[in-house]
């Protein structure tokens, strides 16, 4: 195919990606600012990183956030995978329409509503707000995203592979574990990562469901930001961005390498 980039195409790409990345880049650069005033450059310093690691409240919040994210993403992955299997492999079962609605609704519903409704529920059943209520709330929201990711893989899945396994003598459960699961594993991992990120990132739902015992990092950052710019928040952000970037680059390289390996030996 003969595709050529015009000057207009190149310009819009350059401006577009500059728009996407410049703010993040500036944020990271100013995290190394010696000055307390975030927007005035006062020389290079790693001072705020040191301050960050001495800020016990912030570290505590980060730890809580990480635990919630790991736990809720794990639960969401199991529940979401089951839901995806139900939607792709069970044909029409009673209440399927309601089920589909419940899977899609949390994804399009504004977070303020999801957060509020879950809080009112927890109050009604008299569950103390804190670590567990945030975990349950995040699991509920993120399992829907896992469902969609795994479901889209299952829909393109070649059913004859499962038939072949059964034809060769593997009963349904063994077919699932020896053929289906290994093949949909990448989408399950992707779903887990998505759930983990969404949980780490969430401010609104966590704010509604947080209690005195448990404050998450986004809530902490938000309350500091509302008071004005803080170089410590810049440093924390830079670390988070660094982790995510490394993670994404690592995952990309891993998948690239396996693709390359299979291509190289192909012919």
């Amino acid at each position: 195919m003969n595709r050529r980039l015009s000057l207009f195409n190149v310009t819009s790409l350059v401006i577009g990606f500059a728009f996407l990345y410049l703010p993040i880049l500036l944020l990271v650069i100013y995290s190394f600012n010696a000055s307390r005033l975030v927007t005035v450059w006062g020389g290079f310093s790693t001072h705020w990183y040191g301050a960050l690691f001495r800020n016990e409240a912030l570290l505590e919040a980060a730890w809580v956030t990480l635990r919630i994210a790991l736990l809720s993403a794990t639960l969401a992955t199991v529940l979401g995978t089951l839901a995806a299997l139900a939607l792709t492999r069970y044909g029409r079962f009673p209440g399927r329409t309601l089920f589909t609605g419940m899977v899609y609704a949390p994804m399009v519903m504004p977070e303020v509503i999801t957060g509020l409704s879950l809080l009112l529920f927890f109050v009604a059943v008299d569950l103390d707000r804190g670590f567990w209520t945030i975990t349950l709330a995040h699991t509920t929201l993120t399992m829907c995203f896992v469902t969609v990711v795994v479901q889209s893989r299952l829909m393109t899945f070649d059913r004859s592979l499962e038939e072949a396994a059964m034809d060769l003598g593997a009963p349904p459960l063994r077919t699932f574990f020896s053929v289906t699961l290994p093949l949909i594993a990448p989408s399950i991992v992707a779903g887990f990562l998505l759930a983990f990120t969404l949980s780490m990132d969430d401010l609104v739902i966590a704010s509604f469901n947080a209690g005195p015992g448990a404050t998450t990092l986004p809530i902490k950052i938000y309350s500091q930001v509302r008071l004005g710019l803080s170089p410590e928040v810049n440093a924390a952000s830079a670390i988070l961005i660094g982790i995510v970037t490394l993670g994404v680059i690592g995952a990309t390289l891993l998948s690239k390498r396996s693709v390359l390996r299979s291509r190289r030996t192909a012919h």
Binding site: F17, L20, Y21, P23, I24, L26, L27, Y30, V38, T39, V40, T197, M200, D201, L203, P218, I221, Y222, V225, L229, V233, S237, L240, I241, V244, T245, G247, V248, T252
Partner: peptide
């Protein structure tokens, strides 16, 4: 991948980044 990448970084942080850019004397 470059378009998706920012999505993986915190929403809150990305909005926060603009505060420093847009404020007066920013």
């Amino acid at each position: 991948a470059l378009v998706i990448l920012p999505f993986w970084t915190s929403f809150l942080i990305r909005i926060y980044a603009w505060v420093a850019i847009l404020k007066p004397e920013g």
